[in-house]
Each structure stands twice: as structure tokens, then as C-alpha cells.
Lab assay of single mutants.
Amino acid sequence: HEITLHINGRRVKLRFRDEKAAEILKEAAKKGLDEEELKKLAEELWR
């Protein structure tokens, strides 16, 4: 699955395995994680 989040006016595509991962990524984006941090988090969730 993929999700596209808008971060600092940019579109960031993240891959994720399940809905739980999608929710975690959305929450992290709301908390203000930047693009690099979100990509790292997405990679961690993928494993």
C-alpha cells in the first residue's frame, strides 16, 4: 500500500504494509515529523 502525505507543502509518498502502519504514519505527520523521519519510520514499520 502507499499513502501520500502533505508535509511542509510537499507531497511525500510512503509505503506501508497495513492499516495500523498507515495510522502510525498519519499520527507522526500530525506531530510534526519531517520527511526524513517519516521515511525512516515507514521503513521500520515495513519490517
Rank of each mutant, 00 (worst) to 15 (best):
Glu2Asp: 07
Glu2Thr: 12
Glu2Met: 08
Ile3Tyr: 02
Thr4Cys: 12
Thr4Trp: 07
Leu5Pro: 00
Leu5Ser: 00
Leu5Met: 07
Leu5Val: 12
Leu5Asp: 00
Leu5Asn: 01
His6Ala: 08
His6Cys: 14
His6Trp: 07
Ile7Tyr: 02
Ile7Asn: 02
Ile7Pro: 03
Asn8Val: 03
Asn8Phe: 02
Gly9Asn: 05
Arg10Ala: 07
Arg10Ser: 09
Arg10Trp: 02
Arg10Gln: 11
Arg10Met: 09
Arg11Val: 15
Arg11Trp: 14
Arg11Ile: 15
Val12Asp: 00
Val12Lys: 01
Val12Glu: 01
Val12Gly: 00
Lys13His: 11
Lys13Asp: 08
Lys13Glu: 07
Leu14Trp: 01
Leu14Cys: 03
Leu14Pro: 00
Leu14Arg: 00
Arg15Lys: 12
Phe16Pro: 04
Arg17Val: 10
Arg17Gln: 10
Asp18Phe: 04
Asp18Ala: 03
Asp18Cys: 03
Asp18Val: 03
Asp18His: 05
Glu19Ser: 11
Lys20Arg: 13
Lys20Thr: 10
Ala21Met: 07
Ala21Leu: 03
Ala22Val: 11
Ala22Gly: 14
Ala22Pro: 05
Ala22His: 08
Glu23Arg: 09
Glu23Ser: 13
Ile24Glu: 08
Ile24Val: 11
Ile24Ala: 10
Ile24Pro: 01
Ile24Trp: 04
Leu25Thr: 01
Leu25His: 00
Lys26Ile: 12
Glu27Lys: 09
Glu27Cys: 07
Glu27Ala: 12
Glu27Asn: 09
Ala28Leu: 07
Ala28Thr: 03
Ala28Gln: 08
Ala28Ile: 04
Ala29Ile: 11
Ala29Thr: 05
Lys30Leu: 13
Lys31Cys: 10
Lys31Val: 11
Lys31Phe: 10
Gly32Met: 07
Gly32Trp: 04
Gly32Ser: 05
Gly32Ile: 05
Gly32His: 05
Asp34Ala: 11
Asp34Asn: 14
Glu35Pro: 09
Glu35Arg: 06
Glu36Phe: 11
Glu37His: 13
Glu37Lys: 12
Glu37Met: 14
Glu37Phe: 10
Glu37Arg: 10
Leu38Arg: 00
Leu38His: 00
Lys39Ala: 08
Lys39Gln: 11
Lys40Trp: 11
Lys40Gly: 08
Lys40Pro: 01
Leu41Asp: 00
Leu41Ser: 01
Leu41Ile: 09
Leu41Tyr: 04
Leu41Lys: 04
Ala42Tyr: 04
Ala42Lys: 00
Ala42Gln: 04
Ala42Trp: 04
Glu43Asp: 13
Glu43Gln: 07
Glu43Leu: 07
Glu43Ile: 06
Glu43Gly: 05
Glu44Asn: 09
Glu44Ile: 10
Leu45Gly: 01
Leu45Pro: 00
Trp46Met: 06
Trp46Gln: 03
Trp46Ala: 03
Arg47Asp: 14
Arg47Thr: 14
